Simulated scan of single mutants.
Amino acid sequence: MPEKAHYGLLKGKKGIVFGPLDESSIGWQIALHAYREGAEIAISNVAAALRFGNIEELSTLCGNAPMFVCDASKNEDVDACFKELKEKMGSVDFIVHSIGMSQNIRKQLPYEDLNYEWFIKTLDVSALSLHRLVSYALKNEAINKGGSILSLSYIASQRNYWTYSDMGDAKSLLESIVRSYGPRLARQAIRINTISQSPTYTKAGSGIPGFEKMYEYSDLMSPLGNASAEECAEYCMTILSDLSRKVTMQNLFHDGGYSSMGATIPMIKLAHEVLNDKELALRVGLDE
């Protein structure tokens, strides 16, 4: 990553990022940017990710950040993680939840014919895990008053994106958990938010059927174009810092303006071209 200006937004703060895998992941970029903004960082993921991802490299880049093996879908793992975190680092000022998974999407099962065991797993790993992280952080007194909790969402929580399948339901549940927990956390001046990011070329994102088309469409529909993982991380720094101390229970769009657009001239021109060219419509599958 090229050198950019840093502002010390997280100087003196400590935090843990759950879910970074490799350089393409948003969680990776958040951890790296938080470290460069002055924070002391810890990293967590499941055992398989620690073996097959590049987590050790990220740890080195973040000042030899401690790594914690934790399956966020298991109570005992999360409880043990926060106990160990508190022993090694003390209580933290921010928690980042960058976790999501759908076996139904991996296997490309149609939404009307999902494997329900996998569906429940999608909801557990991608949404209930946030509730679990927050609950055990509080039980272990592992997050400081005035802290910030942040998770990553997608606009499919509010609109239908055909191939996003059961992950759309998971993101809806994720955002609901944020709203439900918000007033409860506010008693300790802790805020909780989600960021709804543009389609991003991560390992998880790239596994969605038709992702390239989703990405291109979003880019054409966004006045500023799609936001990268690195740009998302930069925005996250403001939400983790004290600059956002009165922002809570929000789903914050970071998508180049996509969420507020009806149509753009490039998209109108493309649609007009396709609608008036039967051969082209057939070639791109519009007849489907």
Score class of each variant (00 low, 15 high):
residue 30 I to S: 02
residue 263 A to S: 12
residue 224 L to Q: 11
residue 79 D to L: 00
residue 174 L to C: 01
residue 197 Q to S: 02
residue 182 G to T: 02
residue 172 S to F: 04
residue 246 K to E: 10
residue 272 H to Q: 13
residue 148 S to W: 03
residue 214 M to D: 08
residue 228 S to A: 08
residue 241 S to V: 03
residue 78 V to M: 11
residue 222 S to E: 06
residue 134 V to Y: 12
residue 256 G to T: 10
residue 99 I to G: 10
residue 253 F to V: 07
residue 47 A to E: 15
residue 44 S to Y: 05
residue 16 I to S: 03
residue 120 I to K: 15
residue 86 K to V: 06
residue 101 M to C: 02
residue 228 S to F: 04
residue 27 G to Y: 07
residue 75 N to E: 12
residue 2 P to K: 14
residue 257 G to F: 05
residue 165 S to H: 11
residue 22 D to N: 13
residue 249 M to P: 04
residue 285 G to K: 08
residue 47 A to D: 07
residue 97 H to Y: 14
residue 174 L to A: 06
residue 20 P to S: 03
residue 195 I to T: 10
residue 283 R to W: 09
residue 267 M to Q: 08
residue 87 E to C: 00
residue 147 G to I: 12
residue 24 S to N: 04
residue 18 F to A: 01
residue 95 I to D: 09
residue 270 L to T: 04
residue 239 I to E: 08
residue 227 A to S: 13
residue 167 M to S: 00
residue 70 C to N: 13
residue 61 L to M: 13
residue 281 A to D: 09
residue 98 S to P: 04
residue 62 C to F: 01
residue 12 G to V: 07
residue 274 V to Y: 13
residue 93 D to Q: 09
residue 194 T to P: 02
residue 184 R to I: 14
residue 283 R to E: 09
residue 210 G to E: 05
residue 271 A to F: 07
residue 10 L to H: 07
residue 179 R to N: 08
residue 205 G to P: 14
residue 58 L to S: 10
residue 65 A to E: 00
residue 217 Y to Q: 00
residue 63 G to K: 04
residue 214 M to K: 09
residue 150 L to W: 13
residue 257 G to C: 09
residue 143 I to R: 08
residue 102 S to H: 05
residue 30 I to C: 01
residue 59 S to G: 01
residue 287 D to G: 13
residue 252 L to Y: 10
residue 103 Q to S: 12
residue 265 I to P: 09
residue 178 V to K: 07
residue 167 M to Q: 03
residue 88 K to W: 04
residue 105 I to C: 01
residue 105 I to E: 03
